[in-house]
Design a binder for these strands. Structure first.
Length: 558
RNA sequence: GCCCCCGUAGCUCAGGGGAUAGAGCAAAGGAUUCCUAAUCCUUGCGCCGCAGGUUCGAUUCCUGCCGGGGGCACCA
C-alpha cells in the first residue's frame, strides 16, 4: 500500500514537471510515506512538498496542491487527498481497497509479508561463535535469537542467507582448556596439583576430566605433558562443542556452516595471508613481533599478528577468516558479536580494507548485555569462578518460546533485563502468551466453526458489505502494515520490530474479540459468520508467520 | 584518558526530521448466563538527562557536559 502511494506521488511530480507546473529538480527525493499518528490526518501522509519547498521557491502548501492536481489515481485507490498543516499531503484509502489486503493475506498465506527487497543478494551472517571452552550462557542466547531471527527476516525480504558459526578451536584458550582438564584428571588420580591461574574453574571441567578418565583410563599419565594436554584439549573442545550444538538445537537455532579456526592453520590459509600482508607491506616487524598497520585504516593503533614468541594471535586467523568470507563471494558479510568485543571492530574492518575488499560490505552488530534477574533481583554471575546461568538452564526453566520472545523484545543495542520469574509467569505481565493466546483463540474459534459446518473459509464477493465495522477496518489496516514492518526490520536489521508489531496486532484482536455482543465471530447469521471467520483467520496467519520468524511456537490451544 | 551503548510516564521500553510523544506493567475502578478471563473497558501518568547548534520544523541529526553500563594487552 505504501509503495503504491509513493509511486503515485512520484508520477505526479514527474507529470507536474513535464507540464511545467514545478521547477525542474535535480532529482526527485525519495518519497517518505508515513502513517500519521492521528487518523484524521489520513491513512498515509507525505512531507514531500515541504522537503522540496526550498528549491521550488514556493510555499509548501502550494506545491502540495500542484502535486495533488497531478495525481492519476487510475486504480481508485484513494477516497480523499488533502493538503494539511504546514504542507503535508494526506491520503485516505478507499475502503474497498482494504479488502484486497485481506485477500492478499489469505492468498499469500505463509508468504504474506515477504518481499524482494534483498534482490537475491547473498548475505552471510556469523553469530554466537562462542569458544568451545564452556557452555553457552544467556548472553549467547540473546545473540543466537537475534542472529537466527535476523536471518529469517532477511530471507523473508528476498536475501539469500548463509548462517555460520566460527569455531575458535585453536590457540591459547583451547590450550588453557586442555591444561585445566588435565589438572582435574590428575587430581582424580590422587595428585595434588593446582589449576593454572588463568584456568577454567567451572564444575564442567571436572565432569570432562571424569569422562576422559573413564574413556582413556590412566594412559595420559604416560604421555609427555604437552601431548597429554593436547589430548585433553581436543577431547574437551569436542565435547563442549557437541553440547553447544545440542543447546542451540534445543533453542531452535540452526547453522548452515560450522567454520573451524584450526582449518585455517591446517590449510595454510593463515600463513598465506601473512605472506600476502608482507608482500603488500601491510605488516612490519617491531621488537620481535609482527604488527599489522591497522592504524593506517582507521584503528587507533597497530595490532600484533605474530607475537615475539612466534605464536600467532587470534587477529591473524581472523584476518584469514574474513578474507575467506569475502572470497566466498558474499555480497554482504555480517558479524554479530557481544558488545564486549566492540574494540575489535576497527582492526577487523581495517584488515579487510587493507586486503583490498570493500569495507562497506562488512558490518558488525553489537548485541548488548543481558542482566539476569529473578523476581527483580540480579542473579550474580562470574565467568571466572565458573558460576553462571547457562542458556540451557534458562531454556529448561522458562521455556524456549518465552526466552526467544523476550530476547527479541529489546533493540539489540539496549541492555536487556531478563527476569526469570517474569518469563515464567502465565499472566498479562508476560507478553509472550499475550500474542500466542491470539493464535490459540482464533484456532479455537475455527474449531468451533468447523463443528458448525464452516469448513471452507474463502473469499466471497459480499464480504465487503459484511466486514465494515470500524474495528474491522482498523484490523485490516494493521494487517496491511505487516509487510512494511518486515521490510523495515530487514533494512534496519532490527528484529525487535516484529514482536512489537505482533503485540499491537494481538491487542487489537483481543479488543475486537472481547466486544462479543457486537462482534461474535460465529453467530446465527451464516453469511456474517463466514465473513468474520475469513477476517480472523487472516489475523491468525500473520500471528503465525510473525512468531515463526521469531522461532516461537503458535499453539492451537493453551 | 580514549572508544561503544543507554538516558522518554512510578517501572520496563517503542518512537529511523514532521502535525496533539505512545505501549505494557504497576495504581484505582469496572466487565464473564457468551467462540478460552493467559482477556477486555475506564481513569490518571511526561522540563523526551542538561546546554548549545543545524533546520521552515529536533524526542529524533551534530557538538559539549552530566548520570548509568560495558570495553580499552605481544588476551579473545
Amino acid at each position: 500500500m505504501k509503495d503504491k502511494l509513493s509511486l503515485l506521488v512520484q508520477h505526479a511530480i514527474t507529470s507536474a514537471l513535464t507540464a511545467g507546473h514545478l521547477h525542474s529538480l535535480e532529482a526527485i527525493p525519495p518519497i517518505v510515506m508515513d502513517i500519521p499518528k492521528i487518523s484524521a490526518h489520513g491513512d498515509y501522509s507525505t512531507n514531500i512538498a515541504m522537503t522540496i519547498a526550498a528549491s521550488q521557491k514556493k510555499a509548501p502548501r502550494d506545491i502540495a496542491g500542484i502535486i495533488i492536481d497531478h495525481i492519476e489515481d487510475s486504480d481508485r485507490l484513494l477516497s480523499k487527498v488533502e493538503v494539511a498543516g504546514a504542507g503535508f499531503i494526506n491520503f485516505f484509502i478507499a475502503q474497498s481497497k482494504w479488502y484486497e489486503v485481506l485477500k492478499a493475506v489469505h492468498d499469500k498465506d505463509k508468504a504474506y509479508g515477504t518481499s524482494q527487497l534483498g534482490l537475491g543478494k547473498c548475505v552471510q551472517i556469523e553469530f554466537v561463535s562462542a569458544n568451545p571452552t564452556g557452555p553457552l550462557h544467556v548472553g549467547h542466547g540473546r545473540c543466537a535469537a537475534v542472529g537466527e531471527t535476523l536471518s529469517a527476516i532477511f530471507k523473508a525480504a528476498g536475501y539469500d542467507v548463509e548462517k555460520e558459526y566460527y569455531v575458535n578451536d585453536s590457540g591459547r584458550q583451547i590450550r588453557t582448556l586442555g591444561e585445566s582438564v588435565f589438572v582435574r584428571y590428575q587430581q582424580l588420580l590422587g595428585k595434588t596439583i593446582d589449576l593454572p591461574k588463568d584456568g577454567y574453574q567451572g564444575a564442567y571441567i571436572k565432569d570432562l576430566a571424569r569422562m576422559l578418565l573413564d574413556q582413556e583410563g590412566q594412559r595420559l599419565m604416560d604421555l609427555p605433558e604437552d601431548e597429554a594436554v593436547a589430548v585433553c584439549a581436543r577431547f574437551a573442545a569436542e565435547k563442549i562443542l557437541a553440547e553447544i550444538r545440542e543447546d542451540l538445537v534445543a533453542f531452535g537455532i540452526s547453522f548452515d556452516n560450522w567454520f573451524s579456526e584450526q582449518s585455517l592453520y591446517d590449510s595454510g590459509a593463515v600463513q598465506a595471508v601473512m605472506i600476502q600482508c608482507k608482500d603488500q607491506a601491510n605488516v612490519y616487524e617491531h621488537e620481535g613481533a609482527l604488527w599489522f598497520r591497522t592504524k593506517d585504516f582507521g584503528d587507533e593503533k597497530d595490532r600484533v599478528v605474530v607475537r615475539a614468541n612466534g605464536l600467532t594471535t587470534y587477529f591473524a586467523s581472523d584476518i584469514a577468516y574474513h578474507k575467506d568470507k569475502f572470497e566466498r563471494g558474499f555480497d554482504r558479510v555480517l558479524d554479530i558479536w557481544g558488545a564486549d568485543h566492540h574494540g575489535y571492530i576497527p582492526r577487523v574492518a581495517a584488515s579487510i580494507q587493507a586486503l583490498g575488499y570493500d569495507a562497506d560490505r562488512f558490518q558488525v552488530l553489537l548485541v548488548q548485555m543481558v542482566n539476569l534477574l529473578r523476581g527483580g533481583k540480579p542473579v550474580t554471575m562470574s565467568t571466572r569462578a565458573g558460576e553462571f546461568v547457562t542458556l540451557r538452564e534458562v531454556i529448561d526453566e522458562v521455556g524456549r518460546d518465552a526466552a526467544r520472545f523476550l530476547f527479541l523484545l529489546r533493540h539489540y543495542e539496549s541492555p536487556l533485563d531478563f527476569d526469570l520469574e517474569l518469563a515464567k509467569k502465565e499472566s498479562n505481565e508476560n507478553p509472550v502468551y499475550y500474542v500466542q493466546y491470539v493464535h490459540a483463540r482464533i484456532s479455537n474459534i475455527l474449531r468451533k466453526a468447523e463443528e458448525r459446518g464452516y469448513t471452507n473459509i474463502s473469499w466471497d464477493e459480499d464480504f465487503p458489505e459484511l466486514i465494515n465495522l470500524s474495528a474491522e477496518i482498523e484490523l485490516i489496516k494493521l494487517m496491511a502494515r505487516y509487510p512494511e514492518i518486515l521490510g523495515q526490520s530487514a533494512l534496519l536489521m532490527e528484529p525487535h520490530r516484529i514482536p512489537f508489531y505482533l503485540k499491537e496486532l494481538a491487542g487489537a484482536f483481543h479488543a475486537y474479540y472481547h466486544d462479543r455482543n457486537k462482534h461474535k465471530v460465529v453467530s446465527d447469521d451464516a453469511r456474517l459468520s463466514a465473513a468474520r471467520l475469513y477476517l480472523v483467520s487472516a489475523i491468525r496467519i500473520i500471528i503465525r508467520n510473525g512468531l515463526a520468524l521469531m522461532g516461537v511456537s503458535a499453539p492451537e490451544t493453551m
